[in-house]
């Protein structure tokens, strides 16, 4: 049984079939890619898996446990971490607070402790802070810890968002276009970061990308989504040479 299993997932927005019979099985430690032109339904696939939308049809399960109908915070706590295409950061919060807050489901003190500032709370806060700082180190943003997140350069904000997603201790990490808006240099740096976090945390990764170079470098298997349908699936080599994929990307310069 795979770690994350999606079978025949279909979703309609009104009359629009945004995702059509999508299936996926990720084993622990795998890195998978999901590519496709704009509006193909890639982000919708993420939103369906993480519970933001409930699929019209189909099944989603993590470790054999069905995720259908669970609220997003429950799904996240079960081990699905994610980043967002347009980076949903909290604009009044510091970098450290971002990563600390993602420990929310691991907090062991109760409301009363939070009100009264009990010793249990202090101990727990210290533990969370140490863990958060460690994550900031790993993503090379520790020197920004006390800065408001909107003051950071773009690339650093992306890394903060990834550090935040890792704080929930995900078994599967979903990355939605992690290199959007980056220069080629920054993209190459990002390849290194994803590789490192994959090795360090042994987490399975599903990533959405526009840039083929990025997916080709990182992923063992790649799916190509067009109009909500998977039109091709295989190794980077297969995908690169698949005539359907070439057609879908025809005239685009970012194929390389």
């Amino acid at each position: 049984m795979a770690l994350l299993e999606v079978s025949n997932m279909t979703h309609y927005f009104g009359g629009l079939r945004a995702v059509d019979s999508y299936s996926l099985a990720i084993d622990p430690g795998e890195i998978r890619g999901l590519i496709g032109p704009n509006g193909a339904g890639k982000t919708t696939v993420f939103n369906l898996i993480t519970g933001i939308h409930v699929p019209s049809e189909g099944r989603v399960s993590l470790n054999g446990r069905s995720l259908i109908g669970l609220r997003p915070h429950r799904i996240a706590a079960l081990g699905l971490g994610r980043t967002f295409q347009n980076m949903l950061l909290w604009r009044h919060m510091t970098v450290l607070e971002h990563v600390k807050l993602a420990h929310y489901s691991q907090i062991s003190y109760g409301l009363m402790s939070a009100f009264l500032g009990s010793r249990k709370l202090s101990r727990e806060e210290i533990r969370i802070e140490e863990n958060a700082l460690r994550l900031l180190e790993i993503f090379d943003v520790a020197h920004y810890a006390d800065q408001i997140v909107t003051n950071l350069p773009y690339g650093a904000q992306r890394r903060v968002e990834m550090a935040r997603a890792m704080a929930i201790r995900p078994k599967v990490l979903l990355l939605d276009e992690p290199t959007a808006g980056m220069t080629t240099e920054e993209m190459i740096q990002m390849i290194g970061i994803v590789r490192r976090l994959h090795e360090q945390f042994k987490v399975a990764i599903l990533l959405i990308e526009h840039r083929l170079k990025f997916v080709m470098e990182l992923c063992g298997r790649i799916q190509t989504l067009v109009f909500g349908e998977v039109i091709a699936e295989g190794t980077p080599y297969d995908i690169k040479n698949n005539p359907k994929v070439i057609e879908a990307y025809l005239g685009r310069e970012d194929i390389t």
Partner: peptide
Amino acid sequence: NFVNSTMGKALNAVRDNETAAEAMTVNT
């Protein structure tokens, strides 16, 4: 005490972006 605890900071996260708060395990 409450607003400075991680539990209380969830209010800020809900305010600044509820979707992200929920995706980071906060029961919004």
